Simulated scan of single mutants.
Amino acid sequence: MSTTDRGRVVRERLLAAAVDLIAERGWTAVTTRVLAERAGVTPGLVHYHFASLSRLLAEAGVGVVRDALVGIRAAFDAADTPLRIIRVLLDAMDGLDEADVASPVFSETYLAAVRDPALRAQVTALLSDFVSTLTERFALAGVPDAAGTAAVVTATMDGLILHRSLTAPPDRATTERVLTRLIAPEATT
C-alpha cells in the first residue's frame, strides 16, 4: 500500500471514529487521545492529518449532514407530487433507527455550529442548498409559496430528528397526515 493510500485510510478511520464518538459522548467530550485510541492510531497522527481536533470533528459532522442530504436529494427525482415529496422526507427519517448515529451527530453538529463561525458557514451552505432543492421540487409540484414551505419543512424535519434523541417523535402516519394537510390540503380530501 502506498503512503498516499495509508494516509487516506488513516483519515477515514479518524473521521469514522469521530462520528461514532460525537454520537456516543457529544462533541465537547471528544479528546485527541480518545479519538486516536478509537481509530487505532497514535495521537500525533490526529494532528498530522487535521489542523486541529475541532476541524476534524467539523469535517466528520458536516460529512454526516452532507451525506444525508445528498441521499434525500437523489430520492427527489421520483417525487412529482407534494405527497411523494413528503414521503421521500419521511422515508429518510425512517432510515434512522435506534442505533443510527446520524440523529445525534446532526444535533451535535448544529449545536457546535452555533459557536463556530466556520462550521456555521459550512452547515448553513448545506442547508441553503437543500432548501433550494426542496423549493424547486415544491414549485414543480405546484405547492404555493414553495420557498417558504421548503424552509419550514426543512426546519420541521430537523426538529423531528432532534426529538428522536430526546423522546419518541410523532409516528409516521401522524407526521405524514399533518404535513400533507399543511402542504397539500387537497390531497387529504
Rank of each mutant, 00 (worst) to 15 (best):
T156R: 11
L83T: 12
A146D: 00
E176W: 09
V178H: 04
L179Y: 03
H49W: 10
L14T: 05
E176G: 06
H163E: 14
G159C: 04
V10H: 09
V19S: 04
L140W: 04
A39H: 14
V101H: 13
A58W: 06
T28V: 15
V152Q: 09
A17G: 14
L21N: 14
S52A: 09
L179A: 07
T180C: 08
P144S: 07
V153P: 03
L160S: 02
A139P: 12
R25W: 15
S165I: 11
A121T: 00
M157D: 03
G40I: 15
L182S: 04
A102C: 03
L14I: 10
G148I: 00
P104F: 10
V46S: 03
A150G: 02
E136T: 15
D5I: 15
S132E: 10
L160M: 06
A16G: 15
P170A: 14
D129W: 07
L56R: 06
L69D: 02
A79N: 06
L35I: 14
V178P: 02
V30W: 11
V10L: 05
R115N: 11
P144N: 11
Y48M: 03
E186I: 09
G61I: 12
A51L: 05
V19M: 06
P144R: 04
I183Y: 00
P170I: 10
A99R: 14
R177P: 01
V88Y: 07
L140V: 03
T133E: 04
E176F: 04
A146Y: 03
L119I: 13
E108W: 07
A99E: 10
